[in-house]
C-alpha cells in the first residue's frame, strides 16, 4: 500500500529570526526524497519538527490526509535517524537488532564483515561501523516513513554504496527522507530533491537548480 506524507505551512522562529517559512514538501512509499541546504538552513530542524520533538510556530503534517502531531510517539509511522550517535554504547549489536525487530542474517548479506560483531557492544565498534548499525536499524525497521539526517557521516565510500542499495531496496516498503552534505550521493538516489534556501523548500528539476539556489558554485 502506498502512503503519502504531506508537510506544509512549516514556520519555525527562534526569537525574531525566522529559520523556516512556509515549507512544503511531500514524500510517499516507493520514493526517496532528498533535502539539501547550507549549514544552519534548518534541515535538521525540519526533520525534528516532522518527528514532533521540536515545536514549530506553525505546522501541518499529514499521512494519507490524516493530521499527525507527535510522530515520535508511533514508530509504525516514523523512524528517525538523528545526525549524531544515538544508540547507547553499552548495547550489543544483537540487542539492537532484537529491539528493532530486525534479522541479523539479512544485515550480514549486505555487510558480511559485520558477522563477528553480533555479540559486541556498540561502543567497541569504530565510528563508521557504529553509524552503519544505526542507519541500518532505522532504515530496515518496519515503518511507513523513515527520516535520515546525515546517514553517510563517517562512512567509507564502499559502505556508502551498500547503504544506497539498501535504501533503494527499502523504499519499496516505505517513504525515505534523507539529508546529507554529500550531495552527489543524495542526487543519485533521490526521486525528488528539495533545496532549502531562505527558509523555503524548492523542488529542483535539474542539476543547474542547485547552483541557481546557491547550494553549489
Amino acid at each position: 500500500m502506498v502512503h503519502k506524507l504531506e508537510v506544509d505551512s512549516i514556520i519555525l522562529e527562534f526569537g525574531h529570526h525566522r529559520v523556516l517559512q512556509d515549507v512544503y514538501f511531500t514524500s510517499e512509499t516507493g520514493k526517496i526524497t532528498g533535502i539539501l541546504g547550507r549549514n544552519g538552513c534548518g534541515k535538521s530542524c525540519l526533520m525534528n519538527i516532522i518527528y514532533g520533538v521540536l515545536p514549530a510556530t506553525d505546522k501541518s503534517i499529514r499521512i494519507d490526509g490524516k493530521p499527525i502531531f507527535d510522530g515520535y510517539r508511533d514508530p509504525q509511522l516514523f523512524r528517525y535517524l538523528p545526525q549524531f550517535n544515538f544508540i547507547p554504547k553499552d548495547f550489543t549489536v544483537r540487542r539492537i537488532f532484537s529491539d528493532f525487530g530486525l534479522d541479523f542474517a539479512s544485515f550480514i548479506n549486505w555487510f558480511p564483515e559485520f558477522e563477528k560483531f553480533h555479540q559486541r557492544k556498540l561502543g567497541k565498534l569504530s565510528g563508521g561501523e557504529r553509524r552503519i548499525v544505526e542507519v541500518y536499524a532505522i532504515l530496515a525497521a518496519k515503518t511507513k516513513f523513515c527520516m535520515l539526517d546525515e546517514p553517510f557521516s563517517h562512512i567509507m565510500p564502499l559502505h556508502v554504496e551498500v547503504l544506497k542499495n539498501i535504501m533503494l531496496e527499502e523504499k519499496k516498503n516505505k517513504g525515505v527522507i534523507i539529508t546529507d552534505h554529500m550531495h552527489r550521493y543524495i542526487t543519485e538516489i533521490s526521486d525528488h530533491l528539495y533545496v532549502i534556501t531562505n527558509g523555503k523548500a524548492h523542488l529542483t528539476k535539474e542539476a543547474d537548480d542547485l547552483k541557481r539556489l546557491g547550494y553549489l558554485h
Binding site: P75, R79, P82, F86, I87, D99, I138, A141
Partner: peptide, 13 residues
C-alpha cells in the same frame, strides 16, 4: 538526551 531518540524510535517516551 541523545539516547532518548533510541527509545523514541521504539515507541518508548
Amino acid at each position: 538526551r541523545k539516547e532518548y531518540y533510541y527509545y523514541d524510535n521504539l515507541g518508548i517516551s
